[in-house]
Design a protein around this nucleic acid. Structure first.
Lengths: 329, 329
DNA sequence: GACTTGAGTACGAATATAACC
DNA sequence: AGGTTATATTCGTACTCAAGT
């Protein structure tokens, strides 16, 4: 910056002004300075700027787990939104949800001078840790509507609504006995989907026949859970699976039992993963609007940084009908 | 830091020494300073540190595209390796590979004071842009072995070897006519797998019957490509699909044509996605060691930062045998 | 002389205050 | 006086160099 000032024959203060309040500099002076900047290939040092302004244009995203579909997509969406707004995105993945691991992760972020954090928190452990941190810096939680938002800023996708839509879709097709294979119940998403399923059944005056808990979000867990579903005497008309991969494992188990999907039993998934349209049969599922939710989370974070408060913002998912659901004969 | 110094009754320089060269300070002085730090809840300001040291502990990872399996997993793996080494990971996703988009992305990174960049570059466009940048800061390319590594530091997974193993697996089971559905040919990975396939066939003295090009990495693209495969008179014994989702679309198309997998035709995929074991039939595929490759990339980057040069490091993938391949009757 | 500590300054941009026309 | 530009100082850390034991 001093170099530029020297080159343009002005003081470094004028150069700074061109960068920050260009309207307070005479057009010809400004132009001369701008030419000098271009000539010297000047680029503003972000470290020095960060030191002075107490802000380095870095947003942290804390995620969990490996390659779970939802969190991954959400991370990408937030990165996209952040970049549009001129922020870089720092990533931190919590591999195992023990308190000390989480603390060290958040601490790691804190010590790297982050302007704000978006915590994608599928499980309570992360949410609790985030709660403590929210006193220290702007923080937004991305999770389902189930989290008791006491003083926390939350954005996300309305899991209950998605589950209601999935269940209602089955009800509309004449199914009366609609089971649910839930995801890992420590996940907010899993709980939200259970609640939505129950709500839809209650509104239609149907009882909730069975709920099987899958041990994970994978096809393997779905397959295993399906074995337990098949163990009972009376099979349901339809099953709402907590995600697409669980649905995939379920379908496989059903087929191995000589059951046809959707003729004997309808199946709905959740997520709309890329391959869902090419399962056998193509899977009816619920698509989550991650891009939109990512935007919402970032806007919320920026508002929080500015000291504004906000109402939680939950985006609505959409049902995608394919071949795994049919009218009950 | 001055506060800590005042509290401990020493100069700020001694405090700095405790942080950077603790052995150069007397144990009791050090202890007193450490107590003061704890008492005041002192934490070192990373912005100021970055300004002085010209390094802020930030590694950039530039990725491409949306949620393609490989790049995503690789990103996660690098983040993991970086954190173990004390670096934060900044993420930047290039959505469309036009030169100006790429330049602005890399520029964005540069202006955020990054110590080094890992570019996960599946396509030439990104690789070219990265090449120019490598003069300005430590940079490592993650890609397949196909990239002509002229002066570039490259790490990755050996795509050709993986493809050879997949093809050899089919050859070992008595297949003689082994087709390939390739991924998008602008991807290095896609090209590497084609080369590996051809190599294995050549070694076994078999001709390469057909290569169909899929328009993407999705099941949809695989399904569409399979239609073209089925259009010709003579069907192959087996198909090596460029990834698992293409294989999924292919299998679906084959089944719609009344063909049984693996009895009529064997199929091998690539990636070993979570659901692969629950396709119908469970998919034989090639598993890529992303964690290991992520480590390799980061180590390479740190070496490059230290001015060392390195030989390219390509990790070997592994074949996972499941039910989609059988011996030729 | 070996070792420990302190004073002073640089990093590069932002800004309050003063000087200029 | 009002609009521009310049001077001087600040942010928090690291590090050189000198002083003290």
């Amino acid at each position: 910056m001093v170099d530029v000032a020297k080159h343009a024959g002005v003081s470094h203060q004028s150069v700074s002004r061109v960068l920050n309040t260009p309207e307070a500099v005479l057009p010809d002076t400004r132009e001369r300075i701008e030419r000098s900047m271009a000539a010297l290939g000047y680029r503003r040092n972000s470290q020095a700027r960060a030191l002075k302004t107490q802000s380095n244009g870095l947003i942290g995203v804390v995620g969990q787990g490996d390659t779970d579909f939802g969190p991954t997509r959400m991370t990408w969406a937030i990165e996209n939104a952040a970049r549009e707004r001129g922020y870089a995105t720092a990533l931190s993945v919590v591999r195992d949800p023990r308190p000390e691991t989480i603390d060290s992760t958040l601490d790691f972020f804190l010590s790297h001078g982050i302007d704000g954090i978006v915590v994608i928190t599928p499980v309570p452990a992360l949410a609790e840790a985030a709660k403590q941190l929210s006193a220290q810096l702007p923080l937004v939680l991305v999770t389902s509507g189930l989290w008791p938002a006491d003083n926390m800023n939350v954005a996300g996708i309305d899991q209950e609504l998605g589950a209601r839509r999935a269940t209602q879709h089955l009800i509309d097709r004449g199914h009366r006995s609609i089971a649910h294979i839930a995801g890992p119940m420590d996940w907010f998403d899993a709980r939200g989907r259970v609640v939505g399923w129950r709500q839809a059944l209650a509104v239609a005056d149907l009882s909730a026949p069975q709920m099987i808990r899958a041990g994970g979000w994978t096809a393997e867990a779905g397959y295993e859970a399906a074995q337990r579903l098949l163990d009972v005497d009376e099979l349901p008309d339809a099953v709402f699976a907590a995600n697409d991969f669980i649905a995939l494992g379920l379908i496989r188990a059903l087929q191995e039992h000589g059951l046809n999907v959707p003729d004997d039993i309808s199946v709905v998934g959740f997520d709309d993963v890329d391959a869902a349209g090419y399962f056998s049969p193509p899977l009816t599922t619920v698509r989550q609007p991650f891009e939109e939710a990512g935007w919402a989370a970032l806007e919320l974070l920026l508002d929080v940084s500015d000291g504004l408060t906000h109402v939680p913002n939950f985006i609505s998912p959409e049902l995608i009908e394919r071949g795994s659901t049919a009218f009950r004969s």
